[in-house]
Protein backbone atom coordinates (compact mmCIF):
# COMPACT_ATOMS: atom_id res chain seq x y z
CA UNK A 1 0.00 0.00 0.00
CA UNK A 2 1.39 3.40 -0.89
CA UNK A 3 1.97 5.99 1.76
CA UNK A 4 -0.78 8.18 0.36
CA UNK A 5 -3.24 5.32 0.72
CA UNK A 6 -2.05 4.70 4.25
CA UNK A 7 -2.66 8.32 5.05
CA UNK A 8 -6.08 8.36 3.44
CA UNK A 9 -7.09 5.24 5.32
CA UNK A 10 -5.93 6.74 8.54
CA UNK A 11 -7.85 9.95 7.93
CA UNK A 12 -10.93 8.01 6.93
CA UNK A 13 -10.83 5.86 10.05
CA UNK A 14 -10.45 8.87 12.28
CA UNK A 15 -13.14 10.77 10.40
CA UNK A 16 -15.62 7.94 10.78
CA UNK A 17 -14.81 7.57 14.45
CA UNK A 18 -15.27 11.29 15.18
CA UNK A 19 -18.39 11.72 13.03
CA UNK A 20 -20.00 8.72 14.69
CA UNK A 21 -19.16 10.08 18.12
CA UNK A 22 -20.83 13.35 17.11
CA UNK A 23 -24.04 11.47 16.36
CA UNK A 24 -23.81 11.07 12.58
CA UNK A 25 -24.36 7.71 10.89
CA UNK A 26 -21.67 6.95 8.38
CA UNK A 27 -22.67 4.83 5.36
CA UNK A 28 -19.48 3.73 3.69
CA UNK A 29 -20.16 2.84 0.04
CA UNK A 30 -18.39 2.12 -3.20
CA UNK A 31 -19.07 4.57 -6.00
CA UNK A 32 -22.26 6.44 -6.81
CA UNK A 33 -24.27 3.32 -7.35
CA UNK A 34 -23.43 2.26 -3.83
CA UNK A 35 -24.39 5.69 -2.57
CA UNK A 36 -27.77 5.56 -4.29
CA UNK A 37 -28.45 2.12 -2.92
CA UNK A 38 -27.54 3.08 0.64
CA UNK A 39 -29.77 6.16 0.53
CA UNK A 40 -32.68 4.21 -0.93
CA UNK A 41 -32.31 1.53 1.77
CA UNK A 42 -32.21 4.09 4.54
CA UNK A 43 -35.27 6.12 3.57
CA UNK A 44 -37.46 3.04 3.13
CA UNK A 45 -38.47 3.20 6.78
CA UNK A 46 -38.52 6.97 7.13
CA UNK A 47 -42.05 7.80 6.11
CA UNK A 48 -43.62 9.75 3.29
CA UNK A 49 -42.36 12.64 1.20
CA UNK A 50 -40.01 13.23 -1.66
CA UNK A 51 -36.25 12.94 -1.56
CA UNK A 52 -34.96 16.35 -2.50
CA UNK A 53 -31.80 17.96 -3.75
CA UNK A 54 -31.24 21.53 -4.84
CA UNK A 55 -31.90 22.33 -8.48
CA UNK A 56 -28.32 23.52 -8.96
CA UNK A 57 -26.71 20.59 -7.31
CA UNK A 58 -28.98 17.88 -8.63
CA UNK A 59 -26.49 17.13 -11.36
CA UNK A 60 -23.51 17.53 -9.08
CA UNK A 61 -24.67 14.73 -6.81
CA UNK A 62 -24.31 12.39 -9.74
CA UNK A 63 -27.35 10.58 -8.38
CA UNK A 64 -29.94 11.57 -10.97
CA UNK A 65 -31.16 8.46 -12.67
CA UNK A 66 -30.02 6.37 -9.73
CA UNK A 67 -32.53 7.81 -7.25
CA UNK A 68 -35.92 9.52 -7.61
CA UNK A 69 -34.49 12.90 -6.63
CA UNK A 70 -36.78 15.90 -6.85
CA UNK A 71 -35.61 19.49 -7.11
CA UNK A 72 -36.05 21.52 -3.95
CA UNK A 73 -37.81 24.46 -5.52
CA UNK A 74 -38.57 26.30 -2.29
CA UNK A 75 -38.42 26.00 1.49
CA UNK A 76 -41.87 24.41 1.68
CA UNK A 77 -40.77 21.64 -0.61
CA UNK A 78 -37.75 21.07 1.64
CA UNK A 79 -39.83 21.18 4.81
CA UNK A 80 -42.21 18.59 3.38
CA UNK A 81 -39.49 16.23 2.16
CA UNK A 82 -38.53 12.93 3.70
CA UNK A 83 -34.86 13.76 3.32
CA UNK A 84 -32.44 16.04 1.50
CA UNK A 85 -29.21 15.14 -0.24
CA UNK A 86 -26.26 17.52 -0.63
CA UNK A 87 -22.70 17.08 -1.77
CA UNK A 88 -20.12 18.11 0.84
CA UNK A 89 -16.88 19.81 -0.16
CA UNK A 90 -14.56 18.04 2.22
CA UNK A 91 -14.44 16.34 5.59
CA UNK A 92 -12.35 17.08 8.68
CA UNK A 93 -10.86 14.06 10.44
CA UNK A 94 -10.20 15.84 13.73
CA UNK A 95 -13.86 16.64 14.27
CA UNK A 96 -15.82 14.38 11.94
CA UNK A 97 -17.29 17.44 10.21
CA UNK A 98 -18.57 17.85 6.67
CA UNK A 99 -17.83 21.18 5.05
CA UNK A 100 -20.34 22.86 2.75
CA UNK A 101 -19.82 25.87 0.58
CA UNK A 102 -23.28 26.78 -0.63
CA UNK A 103 -24.06 30.24 -1.88
CA UNK A 104 -27.60 29.61 -3.03
CA UNK A 105 -30.24 29.79 -0.35
CA UNK A 106 -31.91 26.57 -1.45
CA UNK A 107 -28.60 24.71 -1.47
CA UNK A 108 -28.28 25.49 2.18
CA UNK A 109 -31.89 24.84 3.04
CA UNK A 110 -31.64 21.25 1.88
CA UNK A 111 -28.99 20.71 4.54
CA UNK A 112 -30.83 22.79 7.16
CA UNK A 113 -34.53 22.36 6.82
CA UNK A 114 -35.08 18.75 5.81
CA UNK A 115 -35.85 16.30 8.61
CA UNK A 116 -33.17 13.89 7.47
CA UNK A 117 -30.03 14.88 5.72
CA UNK A 118 -27.70 12.81 3.53
CA UNK A 119 -24.27 14.38 3.18
CA UNK A 120 -22.20 12.96 0.37
CA UNK A 121 -18.46 12.92 0.85
CA UNK A 122 -15.70 11.35 -1.20
CA UNK A 123 -13.31 9.56 1.12
CA UNK A 124 -10.33 11.11 -0.66
CA UNK A 125 -11.58 14.56 0.36
CA UNK A 126 -10.82 14.32 4.05
CA UNK A 127 -8.34 16.74 5.61
CA UNK A 128 -6.58 15.99 8.87
CA UNK A 129 -7.58 18.83 11.15
CA UNK A 130 -8.94 22.31 11.72
CA UNK A 131 -5.61 23.91 10.93
CA UNK A 132 -5.73 22.58 7.39
CA UNK A 133 -9.46 23.22 7.18
CA UNK A 134 -8.87 26.88 8.08
CA UNK A 135 -6.56 27.24 5.10
CA UNK A 136 -9.15 25.69 2.85
CA UNK A 137 -11.91 28.02 4.00
CA UNK A 138 -9.61 30.92 3.27
CA UNK A 139 -9.25 29.58 -0.28
CA UNK A 140 -13.00 29.12 -0.58
CA UNK A 141 -13.92 32.55 0.72
CA UNK A 142 -11.06 34.77 -0.36
CA UNK A 143 -10.24 33.20 -3.70
CA UNK A 144 -13.38 31.42 -4.84
CA UNK A 145 -15.86 33.88 -3.36
CA UNK A 146 -17.90 31.35 -1.38
CA UNK A 147 -20.10 33.41 0.88
CA UNK A 148 -21.57 30.78 3.14
CA UNK A 149 -19.25 28.03 4.36
CA UNK A 150 -20.37 25.67 7.12
CA UNK A 151 -18.98 22.80 9.12
CA UNK A 152 -21.71 20.33 9.94
CA UNK A 153 -20.88 17.93 12.74
CA UNK A 154 -23.60 15.51 13.66
CA UNK A 155 -27.32 16.27 13.75
CA UNK A 156 -28.98 19.35 15.22
CA UNK A 157 -29.03 19.14 19.01
CA UNK A 158 -29.81 20.98 22.21
CA UNK A 159 -29.23 20.51 25.90
CA UNK A 160 -30.99 23.68 26.97
CA UNK A 161 -33.65 21.97 29.07
CA UNK A 162 -32.04 20.48 32.17
CA UNK A 163 -28.96 19.67 30.09
CA UNK A 164 -30.81 16.71 28.58
CA UNK A 165 -29.27 16.04 25.19
CA UNK A 166 -32.03 16.12 22.59
CA UNK A 167 -31.44 15.57 18.90
CA UNK A 168 -33.21 17.52 16.19
CA UNK A 169 -34.16 21.04 17.16
CA UNK A 170 -34.27 23.36 14.15
CA UNK A 171 -31.92 21.44 11.89
CA UNK A 172 -32.06 17.80 10.70
CA UNK A 173 -32.83 15.14 13.27
CA UNK A 174 -30.72 12.58 11.49
CA UNK A 175 -27.47 13.09 9.67
CA UNK A 176 -26.19 10.36 7.35
CA UNK A 177 -22.77 10.74 5.88
CA UNK A 178 -22.54 8.82 2.63
CA UNK A 179 -18.82 8.20 2.48
CA UNK A 180 -17.90 7.23 -1.04
CA UNK A 181 -14.83 5.21 -1.82
CA UNK A 182 -13.52 5.65 -5.32
CA UNK A 183 -12.73 8.49 -7.66
CA UNK A 184 -14.58 11.78 -7.62
CA UNK A 185 -16.80 11.68 -10.65
CA UNK A 186 -17.48 15.37 -10.82
Amino acid sequence: MSETNLTNNFLKTRFVERATKAGATVLEVNGLAGAAQAIAETIKTKGEGPLVATPDLLEETGLTGLLPLEPAVDEFKVAGSVAGVSPGRFGIAETGSIVYAANARLDRLVAMFSPIHFAMLYAENIVPDLVVAGGKIRELQVQEGSKYVSFVTGPSRTADIERVLTIGVQGPKELYIVLINGETER
Partner: peptide, 28 residues
Protein backbone atom coordinates in the same frame (compact mmCIF):
# COMPACT_ATOMS: atom_id res chain seq x y z
CA UNK B 1 -9.84 27.72 14.08
CA UNK B 2 -7.92 27.95 17.33
CA UNK B 3 -10.89 29.72 18.87
CA UNK B 4 -13.17 26.92 17.65
CA UNK B 5 -11.00 24.33 19.37
CA UNK B 6 -11.12 26.19 22.66
CA UNK B 7 -14.62 27.59 22.56
CA UNK B 8 -16.73 24.47 22.13
CA UNK B 9 -14.68 22.53 24.66
CA UNK B 10 -14.92 25.35 27.20
CA UNK B 11 -18.57 26.16 26.57
CA UNK B 12 -20.35 22.85 26.13
CA UNK B 13 -17.55 20.30 26.54
CA UNK B 14 -17.84 19.33 22.87
CA UNK B 15 -14.89 18.98 20.49
CA UNK B 16 -16.90 21.14 18.11
CA UNK B 17 -20.52 22.28 17.97
CA UNK B 18 -22.94 20.86 15.39
CA UNK B 19 -22.63 23.89 13.14
CA UNK B 20 -19.80 26.36 12.59
CA UNK B 21 -20.52 28.87 9.87
CA UNK B 22 -18.34 31.38 8.06
CA UNK B 23 -20.35 34.06 6.36
CA UNK B 24 -18.62 36.46 4.00
CA UNK B 25 -21.43 38.66 2.77
CA UNK B 26 -24.97 38.37 1.39
CA UNK B 27 -25.07 34.94 -0.11
CA UNK B 28 -27.82 35.06 -2.70
Amino acid sequence: MLQLRLLARSATAQPITSYSTFLAGPSD
